[in-house]
Nucleic acid binder design. Structure first.
Lengths: 253, 253
DNA sequence: ACCTGAACACCGTTCAAGT
DNA sequence: ACCTGAACACCGTTCAAGT
């Protein structure tokens, strides 16, 4: 898995020679390799592979996202993909950043708070739109070009709010943590069985089986926990976060 | 994968008849099945399986966490595990809640803010301690007994701060989103290649290759983004969140 | 440089047979 | 009720051979 792959023509093939997909050097290496390409007419490309992978993901879900399924959708052999991606992990890292590329970055003209609200909502939207596993994790590493563009926009907005550069960066990381966690948890909370049963069905019965002291407050508010609308929960999370940032602004902002 | 599994003695075997692992009904079903068990001397049990899985996870990492590896560690055949767990997904859901069971829940006596700080730090600690994939996702579903105990403790603390019950619940969800996102992202940020290279190595060179306008702010603060210590970032994220909650408290609190 | 069929070394899961 | 060896239907990845 981590051995070096040498081509018949003596060149190290496409990518990932011991480099972790998503890491800074890995992204550098990828841009190098992309430049050295000689695409054939109607041949494969990383973009076509990502596109097909997104199709598979959207139609058949995450479990169906296999190298073989992507190849079949492209009408080629699965072995062919390995000239453009070094592993399935690379494909997933590429998808992660590609998804971040859908984020619309634009200043609202209505101040930093509005700008950040748009950035947070956009990030949530694209994650929910294209559900990868572990959205908060290595797929959002932070070194892909689209992710860095997003980070830069957030730092700029917090900067304009009056935060120091260092605090703007820390605050940006906090923002990303919150949105990534919110989107991923929403997905699991709204999950259902294959038969269509919501994940929370039977919640009251479940509470009855647990030690009463462990869930005393939940017994009184179970329904709120169970059926809080995802959009309202996110709006509330975002409000807490933005209020917290506001309270830390230097006087005069 | 989702077909019903009937035992030779006519009973539906161990678990998951179309129920999503981690859902409320699935947890109910599991407690039913555990009660119907007749353990043999030196035989298997769900607890022993989880323990072995945690050993594998800690020693050899996530990729090594296969049903077969767990069985080998227990000195049995992999087929034997399927009497206690219905699938690998079930095993992972069980591990997720088991990990949450390590959280120490105790009131500090120093007010709601100190209580919440402890809860957040504890949740982060156990996630980082036992790195499952997708910590923010289905493994933290929210319906396992240990997770519910944790949720209840947080709701209670926010309640004592003066929030309404409904707002206490929303705020608890926001808290979990933040911690889950923070822990998962920290894991990816501190990742390294097999060769030991940090994920961020080569960051400046990477910035040089991107459109200057896309990363203007990062060029000036790249080092902060790159090497912000994880503990400091978390402390900052937590402070923003707690300040935000404070600012939303009704007057008099 | 790119593409491919065939093969390798795995997986999760099932099943019939045993205690 | 529990356990097991053997098998099934996959998977990611590699390799030699072709253009």
């Amino acid at each position: 898995m981590h051995t070096v792959q040498v081509d018949s023509d003596g060149l190290v093939a496409c990518a990932s020679v011991g480099l972790e997909p998503g890491s800074a050097r890995w992204w550098i290496q990828r841009s190098d390799l992309d430049r050295r390409r000689r695409p054939r007419l109607g041949g494969l490309s990383t973009e076509r592979i990502i596109g097909a992978a997104l199709d598979v993901l959207r139609e058949d879900g995450l479990d169906a996202l296999t190298v073989r399924a992507v190849a079949e959708r492209l009408g080629t052999s699965n072995a062919s993909l390995y000239r453009h991606i070094a592993s399935r992990d690379e494909l997933i890292a590429l998808i992660g950043d590609h998804v971040m590329g859908d984020i619309r970055i634009e200043r609202t003209g209505r101040g930093w708070r509005a700008d950040i609200e748009v950035l947070m909502s956009e990030m949530r939207r694209v994650i929910l739109d294209q559900p990868l596993p572990d959205a908060a994790g290595r797929n959002m590493h932070g070194y892909g070009p689209n992710m860095l563009r997003f980070v830069n926009a957030a730092v700029t907005a917090f900067d304009s709010a009056g935060l120091s550069r260092a605090e703007a960066v820390y605050t940006t990381i906090a923002m990303i943590e919150l949105v990534a966690g919110a989107a991923t948890i929403q997905r699991s909370r709204s999950g259902r069985s294959p038969s269509g049963v919501p994940a929370g069905a039977g919640f009251d019965e479940l509470l009855d089986r647990l030690p009463p002291d462990d869930v005393a407050a939940l017994r009184e508010t179970g329904d709120v926990y169970l059926s809080a609308p995802a959009d309202a929960v996110f709006a509330h999370s975002m409000a807490i976060f933005l209020d917290g940032v506001t309270s830390r602004l230097p006087a005069g902002h």
